[in-house]
Design a binder for these strands. Structure first.
Length: 262
DNA sequence: AGTAGATCCTGGCGGC
DNA sequence: TGCCGCCAGGATCTAC
């Protein structure tokens, strides 16, 4: 689930629910989601303090806490961040609960625990932890995008999903963007023409803006995403049968007519 | 440099 | 109904 648009939604949740409120208590139901930090140390760093700022970079959510600590959240494939009244019964996948002043709590809910929460003790440490992340896909300029794709021989889909090149795009977004830009996912990035790259860039921005507004990749009929789970896969644009295959280890869906191989 | 494969986890689904 | 393998919108590491 969580790609850039979803995480942007979680950022808003944390910002509106948590920022400025004092953290009363941190309850770790499953320490398996804490990375590089014990539950007691994690709780100690947060309790009694406030979240002072909330940012996002790619698929990472970054929450600054009074006193200099920074919480880094990644949602893997199944993670979510929710804001609920403390009286709501916990869900069995609520791994960490952050009880706030005023009766609300933040919940890190995750079925698969493929990623999790990290604690950086300073701004500098947080920067180091995110050093491998490229610029956010929404913040990246056309020139940078051209440069990055121009030098890569890998498949364009692999480059779009490479978080060190461009942070925030996942499998669904990559498929959607390539479908709308009429590009086959296995095309070598450096084989794309200047026009292709420009179209890809504009398409990426459009898809991201629409998705951020919906806080997810919208599964509408007019979007490729709305069709990938159907039994008979049909291109919403031309009606051709969609193809399904693996690139860069991930399932891809594409239209052989709209996105011819070259 | 690029990619396939295994790995970290859990759960839903289809097939037998 | 039960068991099994496969699959899932992520990321990292190893081996070619």
């Amino acid at each position: 689930m969580p790609e850039l648009p979803d995480v942007e939604g979680f950022r808003r949740t944390l910002d509106s629910c948590g920022r400025g409120r004092q953290i009363k208590k941190v309850e770790v139901a499953d320490a398996g989601v804490l990375r590089g930090v014990s539950a007691p140390r994690f709780a100690r760093a947060l309790e009694g303090r406030r979240f002072v700022a909330v940012e996002r970079r790619g698929k990472w959510l970054i929450a600054r806490v009074e006193g200099g600590a920074v919480v880094l959240l990644h949602f893997g494939m199944t993670g979510q961040l929710l804001c609920s009244p403390s009286t709501d019964p916990p869900h069995r996948h609520d791994r960490v609960r952050v009880l706030l002043d005023g009766g609300l709590e933040l919940r890190y809910r995750d079925q698969r625990k493929l990623q999790g929460l990290r604690l950086a003790t300073s701004q500098a440490a947080a920067e180091r932890a995110l050093a491998g992340q490229g610029p956010d896909a929404l913040a990246v300029g056309r020139e940078y995008f051209r440069g990055e794709l121009g030098v890569r021989r890998a498949k364009v889909k692999a480059v779009l999903m490479d978080q060190s090149a461009l942070a925030g795009l996942g499998n669904l977004l990559a498929d959607e963007i390539l479908w709308r830009a009429h590009l086959h996912p296995a095309t070598a990035a450096n084989q794309l023409s200047g026009r292709d790259v420009d179209r890809l860039y504009s398409t990426m921005r459009q898809v991201l803006h629409l998705s951020v507004r919906a806080q997810r990749v919208p599964a509408r009929r007019s979007w490729l995403t709305g069709h990938r789970e159907a039994k008979t896969l049909q291109c919403p644009r031309c009606g051709s049968s969609l193809l399904r295959g693996k690139f860069a280890g991930r399932t891809s869906v594409w239209c052989p007519y709209c996105q011819p191989e070259r």
